[in-house]
Amino acid sequence: MNLLRCENGHFYDGDQFAQCPHCGNQGRNDDLTVGLTQGTIGQMDQNLDQNTEALTPQYETNTLAAAVQQATGGSVDFGNDSATVGYYDQALGSEPVVGWLVCIEGNHLGSDYRLKSGRNFIGRASSMDVAITGDDTVSREKHAIVVYEPKSHIFMIQPGESKELSYVNDKVVLAAEKLETNDIITLGATKLMFFPCCGEQFNWEMLQRV
């Protein structure tokens, strides 16, 4: 027994633990299960979204892998004696992005939210398309709705179903209004800036036509 005392005042056996086992993540020396904070993921995370191969385990061709592959519905490439089992990590919300909201004020400062075609519900619940989790001043469900209309390639904002109000550039939103680049949406204590990806200049339908 090698009794040690950590910076936070916990006693522990230095023979058994390299660092204080009571201080959670701070040790980060061996096999504690820890999460990565969103900020540090950054660009790599986006790279992964665009590269499904990273999510694709490589298997030798054999019956078990083939059966698993069938169950997961993966795209299959039988080149070079190895089966590629596609897909089965499913990146949730992998629909093509049409625009982004970036948090410029609030507890998700610096985070970006993907917008997809059609209606994007904004709220605090993690089931929302744009989930401003943890901000109690944002309604749990459908505080506001951002719409991308793929035929005319325009973005609109409209009020949700909650009693809370939303604002665009500090003007209250009571009916559907067109959104322009750099418009600032305010929901409770959170401010989101709007950036389009799709519009007249570029849209995914354009690529499909070529």
């Binding site: 169950a71 997961t72 089965y88 990590d89 990146a91 949730l92 993690s126 989930a131 989790t133």
Partner: peptide, 9 residues
């Protein structure tokens, strides 16, 4: 608060 990846068949 926002599960990015799940494995599912």
């Amino acid at each position: 608060g926002n599960v990015r990846f799940i494995n599912i068949n």
